[in-house]
């Protein structure tokens, strides 16, 4: 067994507790190890984004504990949470969410800048990542000059630039065409394999689900299944 990255216990999140309570997350237990490539699936409104927000420290559970790399983030103050996210978590959002006034390079190095990384370190890391995402020629382009797929690749580069412990991606391929989605998944899978970065992403996309090593299904805020997927590459190798 690898190191535990995410350990969530009895997590509950209720909206409108005083009027008509809606259990967005209902008694969820989740355990994710380092290097996993996990898909969180479920119908719309099942609580995928809420669970990712809770794990990412963007929201607080009403009940339960979420331990990330040994730190119970439910006990952290808002300021400590910001600092924790900066140092430990990479985010990829559904609608890219790049900063429009910054270039692709500046967007990608944004978190490194917040961390106070030196220019040489930033340049080396960004150069390496842009090579990975095959966008070396777009370093100085503004988001508005990039396609949706390119913007999402920059968002992935931004999430990975500071070498976080794990990356949370909320429907990363939802706004992409199939080719861009496939390219993005290739990049994510490669980084997962080569840099051992843990990925947890929510998705509706069957192509994404097929690439995941583990699929967790959420329905009405509850985990209804948690399945380890067969690595088709290994399967093919065994058949040969």
């Amino acid at each position: 067994m690898g190191n535990t990255v995410i350990d969530a216990h009895n997590v509950n999140k209720v909206y409108n507790p005083d009027t008509i309570p809606v259990y967005a997350i209902n008694n969820v237990h989740l355990h994710i190890e380092e290097g996993e490539f996990t898909a969180l699936v479920g119908p719309s409104g099942s609580g995928k984004t809420t669970l990712l927000n809770l794990i990412g420290g963007l929201d607080k559970p009403d009940q339960g504990n979420i331990v990330i790399n040994g730190v119970d983030i439910t006990q952290l103050s808002p300021g400590e949470l910001i600092e924790f996210r900066l140092k430990n978590i990479g985010f990829v959002f559904q609608s890219f969410n790049l900063i429009p006034v910054l270039t692709a390079k500046e967007n990608a190095e944004f978190i490194m800048l917040l961390q106070g990384a030196k220019k040489a370190t930033r340049n080396e890391r960004i150069g390496q990542l842009f090579k990975e995402i095959e966008m070396e020629d777009k370093l100085n382009s503004r988001p508005a000059q990039l396609s949706g797929g390119q913007q999402q690749r920059v968002a992935v580069a931004r999430a990975l630039a500071s070498k976080p412990k794990f990356v949370l991606a909320d429907e990363p391929t939802a706004n992409l065409d199939s080719k861009s989605a496939s390219n993005l998944l290739d990049i994510m899978a490669r980084l997962n394999k080569e840099e051992k970065i843990t990925f947890l992403f929510s998705t509706h996309d069957q192509r994404v689900i097929e690439r995941a090593k583990r699929v967790i299904t959420l329905v009405d805020g509850k985990i209804t299944s948690d399945t380890a997927m067969v690595d088709t590459n290994i399967l093919h190798a065994e058949i040969k």
Partner: peptide, 15 residues
């Protein structure tokens, strides 16, 4: 949304 995203990424309140 942009400011929310910046805070999510780790931009502190002082910044």
């Amino acid at each position: 949304k942009e400011i929310g995203m910046m805070v999510a990424l780790g931009t502190n309140r002082i910044r």
